[in-house]
Amino acid sequence: MASRAGKQTGPPGEAASGGTRKGKASAARRPRPSLSPGLIVDACLDLLDTEGADALTFRRIGARLGADPTALYRHFRSKDDLLLAVADHLLDKGIEGFEPSGDWRETLRALCIRNREVYLAHPRAAVLATVRITRRPAEMRVIETILAALADAGFPPDQAVRHYRALVDFMLGWSCMDATYATLDAATRRGDESSWSREYAAVPAATHPHLAAAAPYLAAVDDEANFLFALDLVLDAIAARAPSPG
């Protein structure tokens, strides 16, 4: 062992080698977390959040979990299978604890807002998830909830499906656009945002009279408020077609 001065008091190398052996033994005995689909999905989402899609490999996920990458194949057949599970996990976060309202329109509005918020909290994952069909439990719960709300509005199944697709594709498309924008570097985003009050404000009225007149208002548009405005437009159109008032 070493003295307080840091000098070796035993035979040279004895404590060091013993300490190494003990450290290795302790490491070997240290329990590793049991792999589960949920644990793997969480690690995958964390990797996407911090490093993006290019870093997403079973080797990197295994390293995060302290597991052999081949062990992941016991739970997921492929990386695409895992990505679909991540996409469904995001939908699960959006519908977790959600209670439909007595008003079908408010149910649809609240669910769209919740799902978009989840996507924007994980933009790198959302870019991959919003364009996929997960065919998993959370997605089925979301679809069931939306179709039930549309049934409350009086739509028969065939019409409910058409309106479900229009509403959800609007929300997914908008969310994907916002998520993709969020993945751009800060300088690029600042340049795009300032263009409304710079280049567009300088457009001559002689050649673009309507654009010149609207330029001050273009610069004042708030993205969050604009999403809610557009969502209400879609819901207004659904309500106008609904067989039952609401």
Rank of each mutant, 00 (worst) to 15 (best):
D81K: 06
G246W: 02
T70I: 02
G19F: 15
D42C: 06
P216M: 13
R4P: 15
R189Y: 00
A126I: 08
T70Y: 05
H163E: 06
D46F: 06
E193W: 02
A85L: 04
K7V: 01
A121M: 08
A2E: 14
F229R: 07
A166Y: 07
T130A: 01
P216L: 12
T20S: 13
V168A: 09
P123L: 15
G94I: 00
E99T: 15
A55P: 00
A225N: 09
I143G: 10
L35V: 06
R32K: 03
R105S: 13
R114W: 11
A2V: 13
E144G: 07
E14N: 13
C112N: 05
I113H: 15
F170S: 05
S78K: 00
L231T: 05
P37T: 09
N226H: 11
L167K: 03
R189G: 01
I61L: 02
R135L: 06
I133K: 08
P12V: 08
A25N: 12
L39T: 11
L150Q: 03
F227Y: 11
L184C: 15
V168D: 07
A206Y: 13
T57V: 07
L65S: 00
A220W: 04
R165L: 10
H75Q: 08
G102P: 08
A182T: 01
A2T: 13
E139P: 12
R64M: 07
A201E: 14
D169R: 09
S244A: 11
D80Y: 10
V142W: 14
H89A: 12
E96W: 06
L56R: 07
L167W: 01
R32D: 02
R114Y: 11
G6T: 07
F229W: 07
A85T: 02
L84V: 02
R165I: 10
R135H: 09
R64C: 04
L150I: 08
T207E: 15
S34H: 11
A213P: 00
L147Y: 02
L231W: 07
S197K: 12
L235H: 09
R135D: 05
